[in-house]
């Protein structure tokens, strides 16, 4: 219990801190909604005069983007930014002298930091979905819904671990913004954020199935639309679990190597 209380205190401190950046959080939500509306507008125009495009009807495509985006924001993490700051500004020194490991400190801090923006993102996404509800595809069966929930939970863990890895790049270089940008775009691309991955060449579709990114957007959206079966969903959960193990090992290894390079002076 004392361990849980410790994590709760870290969560609580960063939740409070998140409240001080209310206008920032709202500002980002405006950008987010604009982007989503632009995508919906684009596809609505493309569907003019067509009933089916590349195997998708208009309601399917709108549902794909609205729900996929909702899934995406629910499992998002920006832990890389705070990790990068810890390393480049030397704040890591203060954390590693505490009687808990840096890696176990990260999760409650990030959950505390991201809870408010995530809740607000989910609310704003639901508000955008509301006017389109008549176009949305009906809910799938309970089995599929449970698989989607499990997939998103694992996707959140994967997102955290990938963010840890990206953040640790700061051990080697301080110029991380551009690297974050490239990795972020590739992640969004392979998650199906820009367009359904089924529009890509076959080789890229196969590749994305083996990568961890599509499970935060494309695969759960496809499951919802009935374009993937329960078996596909279960296979996806297996791939996600394997990725969690691989990424956790990579995180531990990278942190160990990075720590050897780390210097904190006069903190």
């Amino acid at each position: 219990m004392p361990l849980l209380r410790r994590y709760y205190h870290i969560f609580s401190a960063f939740w409070q801190r998140g409240l001080t950046y209310r206008s920032t959080i709202i500002g980002y939500r405006i950008g987010e909604i604009t982007e989503l509306l632009v995508i919906i507008l684009l596809w609505s125009r493309i569907f003019e005069g067509h009933t089916v495009i590349l195997g998708y009807t208009k309601p399917e495509m709108i549902t794909y983007f609205l729900l996929g985006n909702l899934f995406g924001v629910a499992v998002r993490s920006y832990a890389r930014e705070s990790i990068s700051r810890d390393i480049s500004e030397g704040g890591l020194s203060a954390i590693i002298t505490k009687p808990m490991s840096y890696l176990s400190f990260l999760a409650p801090r990030e959950i505390g930091r991201m809870s408010l923006p995530t809740i607000l993102s989910i609310i704003t996404n639901l508000l955008v979905i509301l006017p389109f509800h008549a176009l949305l595809i009906d809910l799938p069966n309970l089995g599929i819904i449970l698989i989607i929930i499990a997939m998103l939970a694992l996707a959140l863990i994967i997102e955290f671990l990938i963010n840890y890895l990206i953040g640790f790049i700061t051990f080697w270089t301080e110029e991380t913004e551009a690297i974050f940008d490239v990795i972020g775009r590739l992640k969004r691309f392979f998650s199906g954020y820009y367009f359904p991955l089924s529009l890509m060449p076959v080789a890229l579709i196969t590749l994305s199935g083996w990568m961890p990114f599509s499970y935060s957007f494309f695969t759960p959206a496809q499951l919802y639309l009935g374009k993937m079966s329960i078996t596909d969903g279960l296979r996806g959960l297996g791939i996600e679990a394997a990725w969690i193990v691989i990424l956790w090992l990579a995180v531990k290894l990278m942190y160990k190597r990075g720590r050897k390079r780390y210097e904190g002076v006069n903190i």
């Binding site: 920032t24 500002g27 980002y28 405006i30 950008g31």
Partner: peptide
Amino acid sequence: ETAPFYNTYRN
């Protein structure tokens, strides 16, 4: 906190 302004403007 200027980052969200940039973000919204650029989008």
